[in-house]
Design a protein around this nucleic acid. Structure first.
Length: 480
RNA sequence: GGCCUUAUCGUCUAACGGUUAGGACAUCGGCUUUUCAAGCCGGUAAUCUGGGUUCAAUUCCCAGUAGGGUCACCA
């Protein structure tokens, strides 16, 4: 940081072909964190040069995803900036300008072949079991480029390239990795291979962070930098994220879901940030729960991992829980309210849910599993479940009747958890085990093996409903 | 297949060439408790294989093996 001679500029450059999954967000996260850590600039650039694959609404969706997790940008298609525009489809002039420079230098030429012809070259090479190289088929006298034909880069130095990667160290590739490639497509749009170089140049990008799938094509990029006689940026190769099976790189095809799905599943954005931060990076110390500020402060390219890591949902759940525990009362309440069905947004219930959520974390699961239904719906109690351990059912009935007696003698206005607790505990303490009375009550009231304690339950349900449910349990036990 | 690249508990990872190979998740056991997935305490569990270099290798080198990536007018 100290020997930074120029301001750090990073970018995230997705193509608007659909939603972003965690792989993309992770790339954005690191680029963003590095810029923030160094008081640099973080740019959002949209690489929309493939009109056929473009999906409408993607750009908004991408921005929404980034915003949700807390990634903001200094320059971008929505807010502009000194190097606007930030959509490649609006920057065609730049690409043409540099393409012409290459043409003038004799380092780019019009591709005269049809796709079928190229395909035939490829097929032939395949049959002969040798690698296909376009540069073996350079046309003798290519037509003058008029902007409507594909323009191909002409590799001048067929040599092996070497470069330094801030994560991988010294990398190299043989000359066979180099080939003439398309700079400008027949439709007038540039290819990624060309466009990103020009944009990074014009936008002053200093650090390029991307996945390891780009290592193989780096020699191509380097040959363009050489041809244009421009300075290359620092390369930062990020490790792949593997799917849960650990076999393949995570992709949309196999289970990678829309990043915003995690929002719908009840994950907190700061938990997602924390989780993503640790897929491919780890800090100096052993602390694993980090808030965004802590992450930025600790982030260090030197600590980015080389090899890929698996996506571990269990760990994500744990991290989410830890972040929920750290939520302020106000935030926790807001979080709970977001998920709670309206009928449960009641003064007495919300704090109970809040307490349980801060312990167990999974509010979506809690709501969807019907675990909270008993608050407004009479539970279905099974006889075996009402009984505490191996206690005789006669004793349980006896205990429930004792409880019933207590409940009936409490005034409606005094039917509060502390009162109830004092009275019930008095009885409970006289038994072999408190569970012999407390468990059946709790179960009679909630129908669940896990629930808030019986005092809270009866308080919330109220005198009438409590008595009704206890009676119901007694009658279930009395049958047979 | 060519080229590139990676390899530590089940999983994610830590370890100036010298550590009883550390931590976290998961799992298992115990404690606590009116239930619980919470809390506390503890246990099981790893350096891919084979060569080299070195007094000493998880660490450096080579090979093998296994994974991943890439070979588009996609990004």
């Amino acid at each position: 940081m100290e020997n930074q001679t120029q301001k750090v500029v990073t970018r995230f450059a997705p193509s608007p072909t659909g939603f972003l999954h965690i792989g993309g967000i992770r790339t954005a996260l690191y680029a963003w964190a590095y810029a923030r850590k160094n008081n640099g600039t973080f740019i959002l650039r949209i690489e929309d040069t493939d009109k056929a694959r473009e999906v409408e609404g993607s750009i908004e969706h991408i921005m929404k995803s980034l915003k949700w997790i807390g990634i903001d940008w200094n320059e971008g298609p929505d807010i502009g900036g000194p190097n606007a525009p930030y959509k490649q489809s609006e920057r065609l002039e730049s690409y043409i300008k540099y393409a012409k420079i290459l043409v003038e230098k004799g380092l780019a030429y019009t591709d005269p072949y049809t796709e079928e012809e190229v395909e035939n070259f490829r097929k032939k090479a395949d049959e002969e079991k040798r690698p296909f190289l376009y540069r073996d088929h350079r046309p003798e006298n290519p037509p003058v480029w008029n902007g409507t034909q594909p323009l191909r880069f002409k590799v001048k130095d067929i040599k092996s390239y070497e470069w330094d990667d801030l994560v991988r160290g010294h990398l190299k590739a043989g000359a066979e990795a180099l080939d003439d490639f398309i700079l400008i497509k027949g439709d007038g749009y540039p290819t990624y291979n060309f466009a990103h170089i020009i944009d990074d140049l014009e936008m002053g990008v200093t650090h390029v962070m991307r996945g390891d799938e780009f290592i193989s094509s780096t020699p191509k990029f380097l040959s363009v930098y050489d041809a244009l006689e421009i300075k290359r940026p620092q390369y930062v190769t990020l490790p792949p994220i593997m799917g849960p099976d650990g076999k393949k790189k995570l992709g949309k095809r196999d289970g990678a879901k829309d990043f915003l799905e995690y929002k719908n599943e009840g994950y907190l954005p700061e938990a997602m940030l924390n989780f993503l931060a640790f897929i491919g990076w780890s800090p100096e110390g052993e602390e694993e729960i980090l808030n965004p500020e802590e992450f930025i402060a600790l982030f260090d390219i030197k600590k980015i991992h080389i090899s890929g890591g698996k996506f571990n949902e269990e760990k994500l759940d744990w991290i989410n829980k830890e972040h929920i525990k750290k939520l302020s009362i106000v935030s926790l309440q807001k979080y709970v309210f977001e998920w709670l069905p309206n009928e449960l947004k009641i003064e007495k219930i919300v704090p109970i849910i809040m307490e349980r959520i801060s312990k167990f974390g999974d509010i979506k699961g809690m709501v969807e599993s019907g675990e909270l239904d008993f608050f407004y719906k009479e539970p279905i109690c099974q006889k075996e479940k009402i009984i505490y351990k191996n206690t005789d059912s006669k004793i349980i009935i006896e205990n429930l009747n004792k409880a019933l007696n207590i409940f009936e003698n409490i005034d409606e206005k005094d039917f509060l958890k502390d009162n109830i607790k004092n009275l019930l505990m008095e009885v409970a303490d006289k038994l072999d085990s408190r569970g012999e009375i407390l468990h059946p009550i709790r179960f009679a009231l909630s129908g669940l093996e896990k629930s808030p304690d019986p005092f809270i339950l009866s308080d919330i349900l109220g005198k009438k409903e409590t008595i009704l449910r206890i009676n119901k349990a007694i009658s279930i036990l009395s049958l047979s």
